[in-house]
């Protein structure tokens, strides 16, 4: 019995080392996925972010056809990188709605003029309220929403060209 006690510290240390080694292989994740994937979009009603596009409500996300909802901002650099990919998705026939986070109409208009405009509707979320209610943690971020208004997929960060098939597949699965 006493013998076992003597080797207990080594065993505990081994466990500790195991946990830390596991930690090195799987460091604490810094992306926090939304827990709302699989549920209906929260209710919201956002005014237009620019005069050229209508605003956005949750009803616009349940029109029988799957859509892509993109959270973006004119002050966000990865959003610039993402813009051409969204254009490409639009050419593929995807309906893209957007929510502009903490943005002014003139800045959004300038962003659309400079980097392209793939959006059907753009709501303005000046205090990130709708973003928080989606469980989204930053910009850019995109949600695939099916025709009944249920969130089917979340993409955190900018959509890069190699992510396109994944997004298109998610949209197809949402049919």
């Amino acid at each position: 019995m006493r013998k076992v006690f003597l080797w207990l510290p080594l065993a505990v240390f081994g466990l500790l080392l195991g946990v830390m080694g596991h930690g090195i292989l799987n460091p604490e994740q810094t992306t926090i996925p939304s827990k709302l994937v699989g549920t209906k979009v929260p209710a919201f009603n956002l005014p237009a972010a620019v005069p050229s596009h209508p605003g956005l409500t949750n009803a616009d996300l349940a029109t029988g056809k799957p859509v892509l909802l993109n959270f973006f901002a004119s002050w966000c650099l990865p959003c610039i990188a993402e813009a051409p990919v969204l254009e490409e998705l639009k050419r593929e026939g995807v309906v893209i709605h957007a929510i502009a986070i903490r943005d002014k109409p003139e800045d959004v208009a300038r962003f659309l003029a400079e980097h392209g405009d793939p959006y059907a509707r753009i709501g303005s979320d000046v205090s990130s309220r709708v973003q928080i209610s989606f469980g989204s943690s930053g910009v850019p971020e995109s949600f695939v929403i099916d025709g009944k208004g249920v969130i089917r997929h979340q993409h955190i960060g900018d959509i890069q060209p190699q992510d396109m098939p994944k997004i298109l597949k998610a949209l197809k699965d949402a049919q």
């Binding site: 500790l16 946990v19 830390m20 596991h22 930690g23 799987n26 604490e28 994740q29």
Partner: peptide
């Protein structure tokens, strides 16, 4: 302190 690593596992 280490619990989040374990929980993530």
């Amino acid at each position: 302190t280490l619990y989040p690593i374990v929980a993530q596992g």
